[in-house]
Design a binder for these strands. Structure first.
Lengths: 310, 310
DNA sequence: GCACGTCCATAACCATTGGTTATAGCAACA
DNA sequence: TGTTGCTATAACCAATGGTTATGGACGTGC
């Protein structure tokens, strides 16, 4: 009869230990409410029959039992991720599958071209495309949900991922039809900083910041809502809840009658990349990356065929 | 955004992999229903987005993904147990506590005597007594719930635990007042083999067998019920649901007006031991074991003061 | 010294989960 | 071909893990 633990609770514990705060750990690391975290840690303490944190006024410190648990908890979480990876890679290998993660439509003629080339290079192998939520900044790579990804930079800057750029496109903005900005041929980003934005989830990290134009802002963005997929985002834009930035090519790919897209000046271009886990030496990863680069046009035209519609 | 796992589900997976059967794993290893196990494994497969077992007719075999997961799952479960131990020992050390597990009342003058001696030998340390369910054959030692235990043999024969016997007592039987056997001064075990028994839980393993007199039986015991504590067991006996074996000293300790206890012939004596985890080199473990042996009378009188009451 | 703000803990609520029993479907065996 | 055994699903229900609201305690600033 064993008292088992959920790895999620170990992550909760590690986050609290590292932040030395339930509130910060909950909102900035774990994205759950503080009472939920408090409750889970209390329950873990009850089942371990010891306290893990000494709460004294506003300071939070690990008890000796907490100190003893911390390295174990870190290792268990890491080992589980390694297990996920092993399972995922075994599954892909066995099924002769390349699982390709993406968050927005790939388009740009890549999928048919890459698929054809891959069949030539690796007969019998098949591509499986998996949409991954914007909530996951690693596009499914960290947990081994996918083997490679076609994703917009930036990726998390930890060295865990590697990439090669396959397209560069300028930034456009999507607004609801009838919006003031819809009539402009090009919109300076400075005109957008006051607008409410539909943002990626906070777990998206640097990617969210990029699509909010955070680096070019004098002050933080006004967030009118969050979306985990492009479809969600455009529904919100069409409803007039806010605006969103997107790549020039996606303005075309996602064209719809109730949204108007305009180029934006004052922002660096967006970059689409083929991404993989650093150190993933499986042959098909290199093959796939090579094929993607061969099939792409990294310096795409500045403005796509999509035109504002009257 | 991580897909985390419960260590319990990893144990479920390992059990199915090793038994090559959901039904056997559920009933003989995990003590849950087979549909519950089926459901949990299916859910694990869904969240991993791969199958772990190939079901073909009546054969069950691991898929490549399942093969990849198995060593990780075993290691994670073991590492969690190591973590439990580390936490538990750190907690005990910090609190200068010896946590003593027991399943039936210790009695025999041991607790006061051992407590006094321990204060002499380890001033400032305190004994904490924790009752552990009979469901746990290691009396709380395997998961680090306790540091030592005072428990009736047999212990699981895996080498993970070590012990020294502190008392030997013949076996008695407890029956409801008014039971046919209540009038006998001594009961041959042969007269008991047809009686319905109140057993320890199946997870108790060898201990359950011992208290059913399994080794001395011509056929398996009739199980009228299970109990996780002595109190539960005696309530069931008093209600006439079945009978139970107990040590001679416990016949006295647990004396109550609605139960009659009688000595049983034909069974080996029961042995009370101080038990600890093999390899647990903490000083206070040895001290505690020494003190228990010094305070005990390993060759207790064959019959205790308890007499059958008219 | 008091008011305010911040942090953690608990209450109430609710959707989801993990167990049960009943039973369906399928395959192996006699 | 009928029976048996195993896995999967349905229906049910208690427990869990999240939310918001809020209370209590403590630190800070005036």
């Amino acid at each position: 009869m064993v008292m088992d633990v959920h790895v999620r609770d170990l992550r909760y514990f590690v986050a609290v230990a590292e932040e030395q705060s339930f509130t910060r750990a909950a909102s900035q690391r774990l994205f759950i409410s503080q009472p939920a975290l408090s409750k889970q840690i209390r329950q873990l303490e009850r089942s371990l029959r010891t306290t893990l944190f000494e709460r004294k006024g506003r300071t939070l410190r690990l008890t000796p039992a907490g100190e003893a648990l911390l390295p174990h908890a870190r290792r268990l979480a890491q080992d589980w991720e390694a297990a996920l990876l092993a399972v995922s890679e075994a599954s892909a290998q066995a099924g002769a599958m390349v699982r390709v993660g993406f968050q927005t439509r790939i388009g740009r003629g890549l999928v048919p071209a890459v698929t054809a080339r891959m069949h030539q290079r690796l007969p019998g192998w098949k591509l499986v495309f998996r949409q991954v939520s914007w909530a996951d900044p690693t596009v499914g790579l960290a947990q081994g949900e996918v083997d490679v990804a076609i994703a917009w930079l930036p990726m998390p800057d930890t060295g865990a991922l590697s990439w090669r750029v396959v397209a560069r496109e300028e930034i456009w903005v999507a607004v609801a039809r009838g919006h003031d900005l819809a009539g402009l041929p090009m919109v300076p980003f400075a005109d957008l900083v006051d607008e409410p934005f539909i943002a990626l989830p906070r777990t998206a990290g640097a990617q969210r910041d990029f699509w909010l134009g955070t680096a070019a802002r004098p002050f933080p963005a006004v967030i009118a809502g969050e979306a985990e997929t492009a479809e969600e985002s455009f529904e919100a834009v069409a409803a007039g809840l806010g605006i969103t930035l997107l790549s020039a090519g996606n303005a075309d790919i996602y064209h719809r009658d109730d949204i108007v897209c305009r180029p934006v000046s004052g922002l660096p271009p967006s970059e689409l990349a083929v991404v993989w886990r650093t150190g993933d030496n499986r042959q098909f990863i290199d093959v796939f990356a090579d094929v993607c680069c061969a099939c792409s046009h990294p310096m795409a035209p500045a403005s796509p065929a999509s035109e504002p519609k009257a």
